[in-house]
Amino acid sequence: MLVATYNIHRGRPPGGLFRPERIEGVIAEIRPGLIALQEAQHYLRRGTGMLDARRLERELGLRLLHVTNRAGEQGWRSNLLLVRREARVLHGPVGLRLGGWEPRGAILVELDLGTGPLRVIATHLSLGARRRELQAAALLEAMRARARHPMPTLLLGDFNEWRRGRSALGILERVFGDPPHPPSFPSFFPHLALDRILADPPALVTCVEAHDTPLARRASDHLPLKAVLAENGPGE
Results as ranks from 00 to 15, higher is better:
Met50Val: 02
Arg55Cys: 08
Leu62Asp: 02
Leu225Asp: 04
Asn7Leu: 03
Pro202Leu: 14
Ala40Gly: 06
Leu139Arg: 03
Val26His: 04
Ala230Pro: 05
Thr153Cys: 11
Gly75Leu: 04
Gly11Ser: 12
Leu118Ile: 04
Ser78Gly: 11
Leu118Lys: 00
Arg22Val: 07
Leu140Ala: 01
Met151Pro: 01
Leu60Asn: 07
Gly25Trp: 01
His42Cys: 08
Ala136Phe: 10
Leu60Thr: 03
Pro179His: 01
Asp112Trp: 03
Pro214His: 08
Ala219Asp: 03
Glu141Phe: 11
Glu161Ile: 04
Gly25Glu: 03
Thr123Lys: 03
Ala199Trp: 04
Leu34Thr: 06
Leu229Ile: 09
Val205Pro: 03
Arg19Glu: 14
Glu110Gly: 06
Gly105His: 09
Glu141Asp: 10
Asn7Ile: 01
Arg144Gly: 13
Leu17Thr: 14
Gly15Pro: 10
Gly61Thr: 00
Leu44Ser: 04
Asn7Val: 05
Ile197Leu: 06
Leu125Gly: 05
Val109Lys: 00
Ile8Cys: 07
Ala168Trp: 13
Gly99Asp: 01
Phe189Gly: 13
Ile121Val: 12
Val89Phe: 09
Trp101Ala: 12
Glu133Met: 15
Cys207Ser: 13
Glu173His: 10
Ala230His: 07
Arg104Gln: 11
Lys226Asp: 03
Ala137His: 13
Arg119His: 10
Trp101Asn: 06
Asn69Ile: 14
Leu140Phe: 05
Gly92Trp: 02
Ala87Ser: 09
Ala87Ile: 00
Ala40Asn: 12
Val26Asn: 05
Ile23Thr: 02
Glu57Gly: 12
Ile8Met: 12
Glu102Asn: 14
Ala87Pro: 00
Ala122Lys: 01
Arg164Trp: 14
Arg58Lys: 13
Gly25Thr: 00
Arg31Phe: 11
Val228Ile: 10
Ala199Arg: 05
Pro201Thr: 08
Glu24His: 02
Val94Thr: 14
Pro13Ile: 02
Thr206Val: 02
Lys226Ala: 08
Pro152Leu: 06
Tyr6Asp: 01
Leu204Pro: 02
Leu194Phe: 11
Ser220Cys: 07
Thr48Met: 11
Leu34Met: 06
Asp52Trp: 03
Thr206Trp: 06
Arg196Asp: 09
Leu37Pro: 08
